[in-house]
Simulated assay, not measured.
Amino acid sequence: MAVSIRLLLPVLLLLLFPLIYTMSILHERWNPKDMKKLSPKKPNQLVLEPAAGQGLPNRIQCQGTEALNRIYPSSKNSNSEDKVSFVTVFTIYKSDPTNEKMLDRVTVGEISYNTKSERSLAILNTYINFIQVSMPSSNVVVLTDPDSTFLLDQNNAIKFPIEGDYSRSNLMLQRIKSYIAYLKRILKSYEMEKANKNIIFSDSDIAVVDNLGDIFQKYHDFHVALTFRNNKNQPLNSGFIAVRGTQDGIRKAKVLLEEVLDIYISKYMGASCMLGDQLALYWVIKLHLPSAIQKFNQHESFTGYVKGVSVLFLPCAIYNWTPPEGAGQFHGMPLDVKIVHFKGSTKRLMLESWNFYNSTSNMSNMLCLILCSGRTKYDF
């Protein structure tokens, strides 16, 4: 038996040598920092899946990227009452190794984006483009740092410089301050202009896909409109605040936002830079209108008074619908959706959606594109 083992040993070594040699080479070359390079890359193109919500009432029904039951209203139906000033806060941060390093090139259609600044500006321009299509009588006001050098090439958009601290960690706090400063400027010029457009303060990573002017026509007795969702910790979304463009409406909106600013500074300066304003807004509503809280799990609009300000609460599902990030169950897109809010890994989808609309001129089909691809994450 011992002799047979001695005879087999050289054969076994001969057979195992290639495996042992390969493992030793891999061990020498292995570096934990390189593991990310070995990870499969996220897709660099849209990956379409079956549209969620098929067969459910009041949800968009799609066949591929073709919408079967939503007809996009013609802009010819718009009238002078639909004119709205969309106001957003935007800045491009100064170049540094973190913010402006060359990243993997992102290509959407025939356009490539190499830096975060290029991508951010592309999102802003897409935001303006969607407003131009859905509400052609409206304009966009970009509140920004006076030192900002980015250019806007759309006729319906202007830069409005306001002094402040627009650093990343302070941006949400500065956003409220900029909103208040803008309202003060509007109030000063109101008497000279005799009339003012209604105002919608919003994030710039949204696509307006339907006429929002009907908010001011359908609901007559509000000064400020907010959107709510069934979220215990953050039921109010500060990314959409509508203000009636009367002198009283503008003044009341300033009063509400000034209290939100005071609460932010006194209670939530330690919160994440992207959460403080929403937490402060919720605190103000909870303090002055506690009856609103139990209605946030419903899907119907309602009105209440906060320090003499008439506040209209609108369901996020229609006025701030967000494509989910990553795989997960959700109930599709409401048939009457008016805003699609792109966040995090879905921001690239905003550019893809505009590229698709630009090539088809069909807003309803574009919504099916979003619905079919909203569960896919992208590097952006």
Rank of each mutant, 00 (worst) to 15 (best):
Q63L: 11
D82S: 12
D277Y: 00
K307S: 11
R375S: 14
L312E: 03
W321M: 09
F222P: 05
S359C: 10
T98S: 15
S95C: 11
M269T: 09
E110D: 15
V89E: 08
S373W: 09
D203N: 12
C316I: 12
V11M: 11
L13D: 08
Y113H: 06
Y264M: 11
G164F: 01
N77F: 13
L289H: 01
R6D: 03
L287K: 15
T115C: 01
D248G: 05
P10E: 07
V106W: 05
N44Q: 07
S80L: 08
T322H: 06
C368Y: 05
S189N: 01
S204D: 14
F342T: 09
S364L: 00
S134R: 06
E193R: 14
Y93L: 14
H341I: 05
T246L: 04
R6F: 15
N99G: 03
P323L: 09
I370N: 14
I370H: 12
S134Y: 02
D277N: 12
F90S: 08
S74K: 12
K41M: 10
R6S: 15
N211C: 00
I215F: 06
N77V: 06
G332S: 03
N58S: 13
F296E: 08
V140E: 04
F17C: 07
W321G: 05
I241A: 01
G53A: 03
F228C: 11
N231A: 06
N355T: 09
Q298Y: 13
V224G: 01
A181P: 06
N156L: 11
I370R: 09
D221C: 12
G374R: 08
C316A: 15
Q278Y: 10
A292M: 02
L349E: 14
L14H: 07
S78A: 10
L371C: 09
E191W: 07
S138I: 06
A207R: 08
S178T: 02
D104Y: 00
P10Y: 15
E100K: 14
I20Y: 05
F356C: 09
C273K: 05
I123G: 01
I250R: 14
Y378D: 07
P40F: 11
I200Y: 03
L289D: 05
L314A: 03
G326F: 01
D82E: 06
Q217Y: 04
M366Y: 03
T360E: 06
G374H: 11
I25T: 05
L187R: 11
D147P: 07
M23W: 10
K177S: 08
W283R: 07
S138L: 02
N77H: 10
A271R: 02
D248L: 14
N170W: 04
I162P: 13
I206Y: 03
S120T: 06
